[in-house]
Write a protein that binds this DNA or RNA. Structure first.
Lengths: 213, 213
DNA sequence: ATATGAATTAAACAAATGATTAATAAAAAA
DNA sequence: TTTTTTATTAATCATTTGTTTAATTCATAT
């Protein structure tokens, strides 16, 4: 029998088996590290310490297992993002600070995620299409507050998509370059994370300077 | 007999055969589109319209073919980058304008390159290690000019690695998000490129605002 | 024209891979 | 307990994949 769950650390009622989680956790780890094609079903079976046949028993195929993991990962990630963007109580500047902190923490916890997602997305943009949260970003309180600032003459006017793109760029891209940055600056993984943590304070200031008149 | 050449559009003396180029061009296109693992030798043979055995005849293995292509691609890309950074005649602000224009043009011409490189790099950082140009960026005229501006009190002081990272982030990252941006903004590929071309002018201004006191 | 080496081809090989099967063990329901 | 459903296992299948081989064609130099 095949069952569906959102993710291993989920609140929803779970009567799923233990091996099902073991498979998903191992598969997610391997997919993130090596990508879809380079990960074999035997890799997953070995890593999760289950019998190879169990993968097909629970998930029917490697492709389906991948799609479930991709969906859940995206959903979890985007949900957390939208959360900050839509907080009614915080100002734009507070949001910038909050999302820098939160996103950097999130990516430090799962540094392979951005490259993985953007890479797999390129071949199969449909996964993202299904995400309800995707389009919400441009209609978020965050964007509204920026546009409000433009109206009031506080901020320079520019298409909000540029604004949002810039914020995400300076937050996410450095992680995708981590191998390069670590190499040219001779940093350990720990050093690199310190550098990223520095950026939590720097990024909000940079963005404000970028948009302030 | 196996011969080595830098790239198909190279100046160096070429007595390489036609099929060798055909293989490399097809392989590069496929590797960029699907990644190393998802690309099969038969894919490459079909795309380049050569016999499967010719791949091993000229390049000995898929892995070696990939590494040659990766090296050449990186070399070409980084060379062009360093070129702008080290121009003695231009000011920092001019360099910002020039590199925005040049890099955006480069990536529009080969939009899959950044994601491909950063993704494959994650598994195999050695390819980048071999690049002589990598470390040069931090010792470039570009960085020196920024630090000079800091000394003169014109620019805010921050570790140059942050400065360089930010510039590259706002230039490159949007391309890596192109599927997402196109989706949430309902853009065609053409529209997206128009948006990227807009950024050629915007980015230098943003960066200056970011660093100027 | 002929001989020699390079280029090309079709066929095949061995290993890897996604998936299935049939038998067995464990758990749940009767 | 017995029966029935669910979970697990080892073995196997059919393709796919990277690579090689042996034969053949092509080009060039003698």
């Amino acid at each position: 029998m095949i069952k569906f769950i959102l993710c291993s650390n989920n609140i929803v009622d779970n009567n799923y088996s233990n091996t099902e989680i073991k498979i998903k956790d191992a598969a997610k780890s391997l997919f993130l590290k090596k990508g879809y094609s380079a990960t074999t079903t035997r890799d997953i079976a070995r890593e999760s310490d289950i019998n190879l046949a169990m993968l097909n028993y629970y998930f029917r195929s490697k492709r389906r297992l991948f799609e479930i993991i991709m969906f859940e990962t995206l959903y979890e990630f985007l949900s957390k993002m939208v959360e900050v963007y839509n907080d009614e109580k915080t100002s734009l500047e507070q949001k910038l600070k909050l999302c820098s902190e939160k996103y950097i923490d999130m990516i430090i916890a799962e540094p392979l995620l951005p490259t993985f997602v953007l890479n797999e997305l390129k071949n199969n943009p449909t996964s993202f299409l299904k995400m309800p949260t995707t389009k919400m970003i441009m209609k978020s309180n965050f964007v509204a507050q920026y546009q409000d600032g433009v109206k009031k003459g506080i901020y320079r006017k520019v298409d909000p998509i540029h604004f949002v793109t810039n914020v995400l760029s300076v937050i996410v891209f450095p992680f995708m370059c981590s191998p390069i940055i670590m190499k040219i600056e001779n940093l350990s993984k720990k050093d690199f994370n310190i550098m990223m943590n520095e950026r939590k304070k720097l990024i909000p200031a940079w963005i404000i300077q970028m948009i302030k008149k």
